[in-house]
Design a protein around this nucleic acid. Structure first.
Length: 147
DNA sequence: GCCAACGTTGGC
DNA sequence: GCCAACGTTGGC
């Protein structure tokens, strides 16, 4: 799960312990988040738009997918006039802080790990903020953070 | 700050 | 329903 550091970082989550992962406004990313996650799943917190960008920490998915309330808030930059309470368009997950990695695993490093080379986040032109990670990829990336 | 990639919008 | 124009993302 990717976020701009200047907006919200792993350190913010460490402080807050829990947060709603709101503001996802891409259908594919929404589907991954709404349909392919389960209560208790682990997720990487990826820092984007920073030097270096990469995996900064681990979090825990809490509960089920819920409507993202910002879609109903006229003043929010995430407001969506076509979304209704009866038929919400955008969803979020609550996430809980698990740990900050001992060391950030940068995108350059990820590209060099053979077990991670197929990660969706590494694909050229990828802009999805939520992407799946396989068990193999998870283990290899985590191992790299402990080197 | 540049720009490739790609999602979205809207005229037709 | 096509597709040009436009906007956004995010690595570099």
């Amino acid at each position: 799960m990717k976020n701009e550091v200047s907006d919200y970082s792993i350190d913010d989550l460490k402080k807050d312990r829990k947060t709603d992962w709101s503001g996802v406004r891409n259908y594919q990313a929404r589907n991954f988040m709404r349909d392919d996650m389960s209560d208790g799943d682990l997720a990487f917190f990826y820092h984007s738009n920073v030097d270096p960008s990469g995996i900064a920490g681990i979090m825990n998915i809490v509960g089920t997918a819920k409507p993202d309330e910002t879609q109903f808030q006229k003043k929010s930059k995430y407001f969506d006039e076509k979304a209704t309470k009866q038929n919400p368009r955008w969803f979020l997950r609550e996430v809980q802080f698990v740990e900050k990695l001992p060391r950030l695993v940068s995108i350059q490093e990820l590209r060099e790990i053979s077990d991670c080379k197929d990660m969706m986040i590494l694909r050229k032109g990828n802009r999805l903020s939520i992407t799946p990670v396989s068990e193999k990829e998870w283990k290899a990336a985590l191992k790299a953070s402990k080197k």
